[in-house]
Amino acid sequence: MKQFIAFVRKEFYHIFRDRRTMLILLGMPVIQIILFGFAITTEVKNVRLAVLDPSNDVMTRKIIDKLDASEYFTVTRRFHSPQEMDLAFRKNVVDMALVFGEHFTDGLYSGDARVQLVVDATDPNMSTTQMNYAAGIIAAAGQEMLPPNISMGRLTPDIKLLYNPQMKSAYNFVPGVMGLILMLICAMMTSISIVREKETGTMEILLVSPVKPLFVILAKAVPYFVLSFVNLITILLLSVFVLDVPVVGSLFWLVIVSLLFIFVSLSLGLLISSVTRTQVAAMLASGLILMMPTMVLSGMIFPVESMPLVLQIISDLIPAHWYIQAVRKLMIEGVPIMLVYKEIGILLLMAVVLITVSFKKFKYRLE
């Protein structure tokens, strides 16, 4: 029995001395419960609501105040024309618009009141939830505003779905799958392939060859760049001809933005390979830094706006978050390239920072 206890004590010592094992055993559950507890949610929160109210009377203002006072919607803009509303949707600065008909109060008493909800339907599940919440608040507000002796039917808003009127789920997951696949192939596989050379001892032979170390590293990344480009073309062909998701915007700029994202992912993979020594460590880093945050926090499945502020900040640091936004704008919404400058600029900045840090951290002389 003493020998058994001694072996058990020895195993505890081995676990406590291995930081990576401790990270898996104690750190992974904490990260998972935080992500799954706060990020994975189907609740509607922080919906950016805009208003087009030509009548601007007491009744419409009460409905607007009801929506703004709820925990689900925040009135961020007021439009003066349909053209202004259309531009705001194309810039992705609003999620939903509330449009009142003229002389709304008179129509409310006569039963001819007209109110419309214009919704960005690129995410069908979330847009359906948003519509149901808003319609319920509007109907309740309509009943409260009328005197008790006046009876009328339920005030039901008309619905207009932008970009995805058929409410196809493929419109939502295709951009996310593109970001996830390109990120995993470029970053994870690149980091593992370079670390494998270190672990087997062949990297040292490559570094002492006549070829400069910089070109050795780039040569390791080029095949994954080419394969990722082939995957990109395959995904686009399947999306258009199998899933019936059209490329509404510029195909040229969609490919250019995708190539930029591939370069960012390759730089991230190179950074992981620079700070890890074994394939196990590279896989662990890829799983913690890439796969789970990309799936949960990038906006691929769950809306970032409904997450706590801390997770929203972390989401802004994930390259796939900005790439998925750019793909949705170019592929689904069909906006011009000048409305994607923000996403492109952030991806360019990430590429410069990651490639600079990667080459500074890379050890040209192995220990």
Rank of each mutant, 00 (worst) to 15 (best):
I313Q: 10
L218I: 15
L155I: 12
I159P: 03
V245E: 00
S70Y: 02
T105V: 10
F36R: 06
L52S: 07
L238K: 12
N164R: 05
I31P: 04
M300E: 09
V353F: 09
V177K: 00
A170N: 05
E71T: 06
S228V: 03
V174P: 13
I138G: 01
I346C: 07
G179E: 01
I233D: 01
L266R: 04
I40G: 01
T294R: 01
M145T: 07
F73T: 07
M96Y: 13
E197W: 05
A326H: 06
N46W: 02
S358G: 11
L270E: 05
S228D: 07
Q325R: 15
K66R: 13
T42V: 10
V275F: 12
L67Y: 00
M203Q: 06
G299M: 04
I24W: 10
L98A: 13
R114F: 14
M59F: 15
L270G: 08
I5Q: 08
S70Q: 02
T202F: 03
N172A: 09
G176Y: 09
R90M: 14
L117D: 06
P293V: 04
T129M: 14
L366F: 06
L311E: 03
G269S: 04
L207R: 03
V304R: 08
F241E: 12
S298H: 07
N172M: 11
A50K: 01
Y224P: 09
T234R: 10
M203N: 03
I346G: 09
F252T: 07
S110E: 14
M291S: 13
L349C: 09
F252P: 08
T234A: 15
P124L: 01
K342F: 15
R78V: 07
E144T: 13
Y341A: 15
M291E: 07
N132C: 03
Q3E: 14
L98I: 14
L309W: 08
S267I: 10
A326P: 08
L207M: 15
I138M: 02
M291Y: 15
G345D: 02
I344R: 02
Q116N: 11
P148L: 11
P124R: 01
V226G: 04
S169A: 10
R17F: 14
L207H: 06
A113C: 09
R114D: 11
G299V: 03
L23N: 06
F173I: 15
L330Q: 11
M28C: 12
A326R: 05
A139F: 10
S110A: 15
V93S: 14
S250V: 08
G136P: 02
V245N: 03
V30P: 10
K66D: 10
L236H: 01
E197T: 05
V255E: 02
I337A: 03
A282N: 04
G299C: 06
M28N: 01
L297N: 04
S127T: 12
P213A: 05
Y323W: 03
S70H: 02
I34L: 14
D120S: 03
